[in-house]
Computed example of a mutant assay.
Amino acid sequence: MTRVGAVDCGTNSIRLLIADDAGDGALTDVVRDMVIVRLGEGVDETGRFTTEAIGRTRDALDGYVEAMRTHGVTRVRMVATSATRDASNRDDFFTMTAELLGRVAPGAVAEVISGDEEAALSFRGAVGDVSTSSTGEGTSSSGEGTSSTREGSGPFVVTDLGGGSTEIVMDSAAYSSNIGCVRLTEHCLHSDPPTPAEVDAAEAFVAERLASAFAAVPLEKARTWVGVAGTLTTLAALNLGLEHYDSEKIHLSRHPIASIERICRELVAMPRAERAALGPMHPGRVDVIGGGALVTLALAREFSRRAGIDELVVSEHDILDGIALGLLD
């Protein structure tokens, strides 16, 4: 059996998937992990990685390399996305990652992928389960979200809302926008909580950055919105009323857009201390979830207006799964 290791290094987090080939284009998870390293901290302003950010990323990747060695990974691929595309000193990052990845597979290096490839990998990883699978039973305590799923209905529009970029993809149409929860927070949201003027400026910035994506992707054809990555999975956890983050309950859960919009507005208005007290909230998302919520609001409004979509399906499977599946081709 082939065992593969996929690593995704984004602006906010670095993540690992070790998986086995289950046949028929499916994966069996062995290890799935995420560490908030904030690699892209300050990159939007300075154009460079900080020494501290590279150090945090190195520490997390070192642990991932040891996990891959322990579990007998035979094929590995690491991709880097928005922040690494933007950083002028990215060679420091590549030197570090080559040293560590070489312990698993000699000659392995991290790859900076384009926004188009990021979108394609996210789409491949996200939609496989949506059309055919179902997960656990039951509804949230509020009744506003459900962890039961029914068969998905294409065409699908997938959004990967990351720290530095947001990908919107439908089959062969895709667009990567330089807007994400970290980038938006550092650019516009400086107060705790953000002032009305900051929120207005952030909404205008989001609208400007997403306009090209909305023009490039034929949203009118979409029937199902599938959202991936930490902002949207956290929103799902909150809407389900979870006391703690639970991937199994979140995966393929469905949420009325009206409920997601309400939670987004509440998060934007909350001071950080209140966000931190929310059970499913990862400490590394506390300061940037408001930015992610504002991007989500813009996406929800456009999908509702253009395609009549009134529900969000949240998937825990994303670019990591797309990377791992590609290693099995």
Rank of each mutant, 00 (worst) to 15 (best):
A300H: 11
R265G: 13
D287W: 07
A298W: 05
E261L: 05
P283W: 05
G308M: 02
A269E: 12
E274H: 11
E266P: 07
R262S: 08
L294K: 02
V268R: 06
F303S: 13
A307I: 02
G284E: 08
A307H: 12
V314G: 01
E311V: 13
R272S: 14
A277N: 09
G284W: 01
L294W: 02
L297R: 14
S315N: 06
E261C: 06
R275D: 07
T296M: 14
I289V: 10
E274F: 05
M270G: 13
L297F: 06
F303M: 06
A273E: 14
P271A: 05
V295I: 14
V286F: 12
P283S: 06
P283K: 03
T296I: 15
A300Q: 10
E266T: 09
A300T: 04
I263G: 06
L278C: 05
R262Y: 04
R272H: 12
R285Q: 03
M281N: 06
A307T: 10
A298M: 04
V313F: 02
G291Q: 00
V286D: 07
R301V: 03
S315A: 13
V314Y: 03
E302W: 04
L267E: 00
G279V: 09
E266K: 09
L267R: 07
I263C: 12
R305L: 13
V288R: 08
S304N: 15
I289H: 00
I309G: 13
S304V: 06
G308K: 08
D310Q: 01
V286S: 02
P280G: 13
A298Q: 15
A300F: 04
V295G: 06
R306S: 05
A276N: 05
G308V: 02
H317D: 15
L297V: 11
G308Q: 07
A276M: 06
P271I: 06
R275P: 10
H317Y: 13
G290N: 09
L312H: 14
P283H: 00
A273N: 07
A277W: 09
A298C: 15
R275E: 03
R305A: 13
R265S: 13
I263R: 14
R306W: 09
D287A: 01
E274V: 11
E266Y: 14
